[in-house]
Design a protein around this nucleic acid. Sequence first.
DNA 1: TCTGGGGTCCTAGGACCC
DNA 2: TCTGGGGTCCTAGGACCC
Length: 419
Amino acid sequence: MTSMFALIDGNSFYCSCERVFDPRLNYRPVIVLSNNDGCAVARTPEAKALGIKMGHPYFQIKDLCRRENVAVFSSNYTLYGDMSRRLNLVYERFSPDIEIYSIDESFIDMAPLALPDRREWACDLRATALQWTGIPTCVGIGPTKTLAKLANRWAKSDPAGVCDLIDDEFRRDVMARFPIGDVWGVGRQTAKKLAALGIETAGQFAAMDPKRARQLLTVVGERMVHELNGRPCIAFEDVQPLRKGCAVTRSFGQRVTDLENMRQAVASYATRLGEKLRKWGLATDRVTVFMHTSPFDNGPHRSVSLAVRLAEATNDTRKLVAASIRAAERIWKPGFRYSKAGLMTDELVRPEQAQRVLFADLDPERGGKAMAAMDSINSRWGRGSLGIASAGIRKPWAATFDMRTPPYTTVWDDVPTAR
DNA sequence: TCTGGGGTCCTAGGACCC
DNA sequence: TCTGGGGTCCTAGGACCC
């Protein structure tokens, strides 16, 4: 059986989510901002046409947005996550074999479907997704995941929003016109290296000797060449592999210059880390704490990190907070305007498999029960209802979201009513 | 004093993705 | 004044071992 994949994604996904709940936005350019209202992370085609780039700092385009009547939103991940879940429920009606690749993209293994008419199937999928969720999508079809991604990109400029690259001749034609920098896995550095060899299209890259690609770009490059030639090297991940690492990092709403605020920030990040680990049923015995000043600031710069070991793998907020604060205090140095701090951990383990230290905890069950109680209170009353005192109450360092819409679909009070 | 060839494991850093 | 957050994978190099 030859391989065949579809990649379906939501168009300008975050912007489309906002439009679902305010159809008047359909006639305006829309952008959604990153955390802290820092920069643009999603733009509708109308906003792109105004010259707003991905990652464009908001303060630089504020005037433009006002002038051009651009609708500007703070990011609302609760809403986007819920819309994403709804989309995947639609996809599941069209195929049981789905890999959720990101919040707005899913791969579908089409080989087992043995469809008589792929195009009709794809159009039907798009229409159903639009009708049931309000989100417009595009579908790309190819013999490998890389080619499905490529097809999906090409579909963006197709009136029907579908591109099928199974046919060899059509595929060659498209690839000869497809810019190398838009290939999945080719970033700026790689594009530069390839351009130096005169390679500027996906078609030229596909024609490269795989061994040569390996020399130039490691095995990653070799795999891309194979994938572009229709030989699958990237596995379809039907069941999600266990998460390998976890990070909680935030830029501050205002610069932090004193240890007390830094302690609070790190404590609240550690609280969030514990929540995430418990939700996944994972634990860690090593946490890295970092803090740094802003590269855009004048004045003295500083960037430091420290990894601390815990006595044993845990996801107990209290232990994570204590260890993180200890580490933060050790690397803290006054006299700097810190713009960001965070926690990182990798090598997550299942707690039951973790090595236990003898007599490390005389009553491990008690810790587990306290955390479970805290999680259920916070899930009932909202994140942060019950926390650790060291995380602070006022939180002057916390990020701001001035233009956030309500979480329409996940909080009863915010569900829109039709009259 | 000088002389070897592999292994493994860990960490840091680069590149890329959404 | 104001420039995001959270992931994955790969490689090189050091420490250590036999």
